[in-house]
Design a protein around this nucleic acid. Structure first.
Lengths: 144, 144
DNA sequence: GGATAAGTGGGAAAAAGTGGTAAATTCTTC
DNA sequence: GAAGAATTTACCACTTTTTCCCACTTATCC
């Protein structure tokens, strides 16, 4: 399971080193894709396969679906992890994620997300402010 | 699987180099066809075969189908990929796709599409604007 | 505090993408 | 049917980008 938060950097060649703790689970090939809220999602090849299957179930008869699938598939890329654990982030995903030099990589169960460091800090602060609501939710889920 | 987005150019001899990432999967022959929404579709010979089969299964008793089949078959060409990964885009497809010098080639799972760069940018922006739809769709698919 | 691993940065080699020239083929016209 | 023109095809060359490898710095672990 992918958990934790890591501050890494994206160098001027668009290289990003994956957190060492994630490497074993991720393997030597991963898929980067557009995620919610303008995050960039890191999937294992296997997890991405599931997503792709689901995407392709939607009917091509509807223009909405066609555009959505174009958006999702064209916004993904399979990349090799190099010998020291780095991957290349393509420009279109850098743009999508509003990524600069400093990024946050966070583990979210079966996937990881890459965020612009500032965006992530703000978002996190938002969530923290709502800690009470959070507790409530956990309660509803029967976790606490 | 064909995924990702690439900015390439169509030179004055109508030559278009295929993204290196697509070449292995595409092989040395591909099929170019009229795509939906005025895109130009790139199929592998194999994928085109599947499409052709499906088309020919549709009933010729219906005028709609007959016309659609005429449209699809007459608008498709099999082209050789040259020694350095380029193909020739025939004029009628260039026109159909409103293609100029700058084009975007996008991977959409089992096919690729060639777009006029600007048209694609606009279309993509449309989808991006609908952030709600994005979350909703992914939710419906059970992805999140 | 030393040793090991993780993360970052840079340079050289290789590949990808683009543009152009020359040869070959086709088409026209006489 | 032949000569010339025009188009197409094959090949070559250049530029930019990407890839691979090595080195350095920082952090972590014992």
């Amino acid at each position: 399971m992918l958990i934790g938060e890591f501050a890494h950097s994206l160098d001027d060649k668009n290289r990003l080193s994956l957190p060492a703790k994630f490497r074993q689970e991720m393997g030597k090939k991963i898929v980067l894709a557009r995620g919610l809220d303008h995050s960039v999602t890191i999937f294992t090849v296997k997890e991405w396969g599931k997503i792709a299957d689901k995407l392709s179930e939607s009917s091509m008869l509807q223009a909405d679906n066609r555009n959505f699938n174009r958006f999702m598939f064209s916004g993904a890329v399979e990349v090799e992890v190099d010998s020291i654990g780095r991957v290349l982030v393509p420009d279109f995903l850098k743009k999508w994620g509003n990524l600069g030099t400093k990024v946050a990589i966070i583990g979210v169960q079966n996937r990881a997300e890459i965020w612009n460091e500032n965006d992530w800090r703000e978002r996190k602060a938002e969530v923290e402010k709502q800690a009470d609501t959070l507790a409530e939710k956990l309660g509803q889920m029967g976790i606490l």
